[in-house]
Amino acid sequence: MELRVLNYFVAVAQEGNMTHAAQKLLISQPALSRQIADLEDELGVKLFSRKSRRLTLTPAGQYLLEQAKEILALTAKTKSNLESSSFISGDLTIAAGESIGMQRIMNVVSAVIKEHPTVKIHLLSGDYSYAERKLTNGTVDFAVIIGDAPTPNYASLTLPEKDTWGVLMNTSDALVKQEMITPQDLAGRSVLNSQQAVNFHTFQNWLGNYKEKVNFIGTYNLNFNGTLLVKNNAALMLTLDNLVNTSPGSGVTFRKLAPQLQYPIKVVWKREVSLSPVAELFLKLLKESIF
Rank of each mutant, 00 (worst) to 15 (best):
G90Q: 09
D91G: 03
L92V: 08
L92R: 04
I94F: 06
I94Q: 09
A95E: 06
A96S: 12
E98H: 05
E98Y: 01
E98S: 14
S99L: 10
S99E: 06
S99W: 10
S99C: 05
I100A: 14
G101S: 04
Q103V: 13
Q103P: 00
R104M: 13
R104K: 14
N107K: 14
N107V: 00
N107I: 01
N107W: 01
V108D: 07
V109H: 09
V109L: 12
S110E: 15
A111Y: 04
A111Q: 15
V112W: 13
I113K: 15
I113Y: 13
K114H: 14
K114I: 13
H116K: 09
P117V: 10
P117E: 14
P117A: 08
P117W: 11
P117Y: 11
V119C: 07
K120L: 12
I121G: 01
I121H: 00
H122V: 07
H122R: 10
H122T: 05
L123I: 14
L123R: 08
L123A: 02
L123H: 08
L124H: 09
S125I: 08
S125T: 09
G126E: 08
D127I: 04
D127N: 09
Y128A: 10
Y128S: 05
Y128R: 09
S129P: 00
Y130D: 08
E132L: 10
E132M: 12
E132G: 00
K134H: 14
L135I: 01
L135N: 02
T136C: 05
T136V: 13
T136K: 14
G138L: 07
G138V: 07
G138I: 07
V140R: 02
F142M: 12
F142C: 12
A143S: 11
V144I: 10
V144D: 05
I145V: 12
I146M: 02
I146V: 14
G147P: 03
G147W: 02
D148R: 11
D148I: 03
P150G: 08
P150C: 07
T151V: 13
N153K: 08
Y154T: 11
Y154I: 02
Y154R: 07
A155P: 04
A155V: 02
A155W: 05
S156H: 07
S156Y: 04
L157A: 01
L157G: 01
T158W: 01
L159K: 01
L159F: 03
L159R: 01
P160D: 04
K162N: 10
D163S: 14
T164P: 00
T164A: 12
T164D: 04
W165C: 13
G166E: 12
V167W: 05
N170A: 15
N170K: 12
T171A: 15
S172Q: 15
D173C: 10
D173E: 13
D173I: 11
L175F: 03
V176W: 03
Q178T: 06
E179C: 02
